[in-house]
């Protein structure tokens, strides 16, 4: 069963009068329960690809089927529903709302789902427990360390039980020790059955994944892992 099925996806946008071909016919398949790392330097088109996978944007051409549904033809509000139900985002700079406590931040996706207070509070609390922050539920983000903030962000990504976890440089703003902790959590989540797509420029981090895909100049150059044959690591 394919979780992500991207066929011949292209995306161009205009930047200061110049046309940038961010994606030039990319195809990518991700199975349920997979752990894929997409690696590439800045300007390679990996941010654009992540926006596409995350349903924040629509491709110009090609198709993108997420969990069996075609995304390209969806309207903005339909995309919002998909983001809410199918995707859990983990960002490089955590992107927590600074005025809300850890618990309230984690609750947020459920609020937009229209869930009742009691129910969502219980679920949010369970998720924070899962990432080991049950002691800090009522702290504001600026009262937490970077690693703790990222764990709150992971809890927020998990709270709606999305089939895909999309992590954009999740360790980019952390020191190596906390990075290892976060990657450990990621691996654990993958073992529990979560499909994870990890976007990074760091090969050390990418190596933790089951499968590595490289992107350069808007094209997927090679893949390594158990899915597609093997290839050397740079």
């Amino acid at each position: 069963m394919l979780m992500i099925d991207i066929q011949e996806m292209t995306k161009t946008y205009r930047l200061g009068g110049e046309t940038v071909h961010a994606l030039r016919g990319i195809s990518l398949q991700v199975k349920r329960g997979d752990f894929v790392a997409i690696v590439g330097p800045s300007g390679s088109g990996k941010s654009t690809l992540m926006n596409m996978i995350g349903c924040l944007d629509r491709p110009d051409s090609g198709s993108y089927r997420l969990d069996g549904k075609e995304v390209r033809t969806m309207k903005d509000d339909e995309l919002a529903v998909i983001r809410n139900q199918k995707i859990g985002f983990v960002f490089q700079n955590f992107n927590l709302l600074s005025k809300l406590t850890a618990l309230e931040n984690v609750e947020l996706p459920l609020i937009y789902r229209g869930m009742k207070v009691k129910e969502r509070r219980t679920i949010a609390y369970e998720c924070l427990e899962k990432v080991g922050l049950q002691e800090r539920v009522h702290h504001l983000p600026n009262q937490l360390s970077g690693g703790q903030q990222q764990r709150v962000a992971i809890a927020r990504a998990l709270v709606g039980h999305p089939p895909i976890l999309l992590a954009d440089e999740p360790t980019g703003a952390l020191d190596s020790k906390t990075s290892k902790e976060i990657m450990h959590i990621m691996k654990q989540l993958n073992e529990q059955g979560h499909t994870i797509v990890l976007i990074t420029h760091d090969w050390e981090v990418a190596r933790e994944a089951k499968r590595i895909v490289r992107i350069q100049d808007g094209e997927l150059l090679e893949e390594r892992g158990e899915f597609v044959g093997d290839s050397s690591i740079h």
């Binding site: 903005d76 919002a80 983001r83 809410n84 985002f89 992107n95 947020l108 996706p109 937009y112 927020r156």
Partner: peptide, 14 residues
């Protein structure tokens, strides 16, 4: 930024 985060998490326009 907050609006962006909310939208990414699944907030609709309304």
């Amino acid at each position: 930024k907050e609006i962006g985060i909310r939208k990414a998490i699944g907030a609709k326009r309304r």
